[in-house]
Write a protein that binds this DNA or RNA. Sequence first.
RNA 1: GGGGUCGUGGUGCAGCCUGGUUAGCACACUGGACUGUCAAUCCAGAGGCCGCGGGUUCAAGUCCCGUCGACCCCGCCA
Length: 587
Amino acid sequence: MSPTCGELRGGDAGAAVTLMGWAFRRRDHGGLIFVDLRDREGVTQCVFNPATGAEAHAAAGRVRGEYVLAVRGTVQARPPGTANPQLPTGEIEVAVGEVRILNESKPLPFHLEEGVEVDEAVRLRYRYLDLRRPRLLRNFLLRDRVYQAVRASLHAAGFVEVETPFLTRSTPEGARDFLVPSRLARGHFYALPQSPQLFKQILMVAGLERYFQIVRCFRDEDLRRDRQPEFTQIDIETAFLDRDDFLPIVEGMIVEVFQAVRGIALPRPFPRLGWDEARARYGSDKPDLRFGLELADCSDLFRDAAFEVFAQAVHAGGVVKALRVPGAGGLSRRDLDGLVEEAKGSGARGMVWVRLAEGGPQASVALFRGDSALTRELAARLGAQPGDLLLLVADAFPLAAEVLGRLRAGLAARLGLIPADLFRPCWVLDFPLLEWSEEEKRWQAMHHPFTAPRDEDVELLWSEPGRVRAKAYDLVLNGQEIGGGSIRIHERRLQQRMFEVLGIGETEARAKFGFLLEALEYGAPPHGGIALGLDRLVAILAGTDSIRDVIAFPKTQKGTCPLTEAPAPVSPAQLAELGLRVEAEEE
RNA sequence: GGGGUCGUGGUGCAGCCUGGUUAGCACACUGGACUGUCAAUCCAGAGGCCGCGGGUUCAAGUCCCGUCGACCCCGCCA
């Protein structure tokens, strides 16, 4: 019998077994030697007793951390009182009769034990060792189950997995492309796809009807904790489905993934919030629904109030947004000053705080102190209790809401209001189709130029483009955007108008994605889809906040790989073959 | 492009504010002891140009300037 190091139990006592794995820890008692043998599945204690295996015992004396071993022996129940309840295999041990040292190991550059924070540059340089650490290994076993669950769910729903090219052409707008020079067409470049967007739409024209792909995407932008230059999407596109038929399919897949991977039953349907509603209530277009702390609008209270700053803001078309933080009245003056600084850091001109203390309200502005009518009205509006903290920001709507939205998220974390292991997905709908670019003085597609307007807003595209809402949707989970998509334009007339509004001329459009436009003229069905960030989804499921922990070989924040030392210079011969010359960097 | 935190034996940290003997601790490592440990224990030992460069000073791990790297954030990411 050749079990893994994670599966032997009390009932296996007496079995002859062969185990292979790494020597995790060794405890040498001179007479007895214990070695914890580790593989992917777990750890099993092996006992080397000179009385029953003199040669093996001698060999075990030479074993060091991470030596690779094959041991042959007998499973035995541990002597009474020596079982280890911490280990799944803790009832038994393997009495080793024979051991082969399959390989030795140098002392490691860092500890594999849990709970020791090692500099990430070191971890990445020795990623193969980092990946041996149970915490990281667990993430990849989980990620594997996510792949399986996604494929099973989508196949069951009639989806077909199709691959699309990595070597493709650069398309305008969106993120910066990674370019690949062509040897055969000198001076021409492929671009690595930011997503298979155009191809998946073309697959709909091709009649695939339901397509998906777990696919790598590339964006040459600056990195973050949740952004890598190459990342993985679950890319989906369907024909003949409008938004309300499509979203439940995606929802079903997410529910099945959570069930299969974590045994968690997410309640369906996922709540749906309008884009305006999400920002008004949560101060974010990716609201975290794991806790309350909803924002309130108090503009009307201040329209004619004696507090000039707020009254003026309201008269200028702005709003007064308020956040009630239950039980946070105990925050120190210093904490509150810190919050005001944070608010200013987010762009607010200022923030008023009110502490509903026992001896009467205290506030950063005199008008709210003591038993003022204004404070009473405000407290009533917000349902505030003694001991609560109220934060108020007056400004233009999006800014005031965003400022408090950030504080809301920060305070929830600091005050411990976010339950562990809670998952609250929601849909955010009805995004604007377009947003005005102050820099370029033109409309830009908020999602992409192929996103369809909502049916009832189509005519506005000719009169008031800024008011057109899109058939676009984001899937948000615990305050993180994990996916976004839209129903696409499949009619030539609408697409034409869209390009006009975006200031993309017929010639330019033809030049840049003529192949898609042409395809749309040959019986394109109504279609739409979504792209889900697999790395972010897996990170959330794994309970880590960095996607680097769920990517086997991630890049550093400067886009380098300490393991391979990529990117690296190439030989002059390689450059010459491509017709490229590298210019010296300017000072 | 901008802001912040950090950089000290292999790893994690202290020392830096307030410059001054031999740079300290834990783990890992090496040798020894030990037949019921599981973070084994006990004894002994080795291992450092304090990221790099420059400056101030009688004297710099410590103060100043620059630079490199890691991380976090803003910009950016349709």
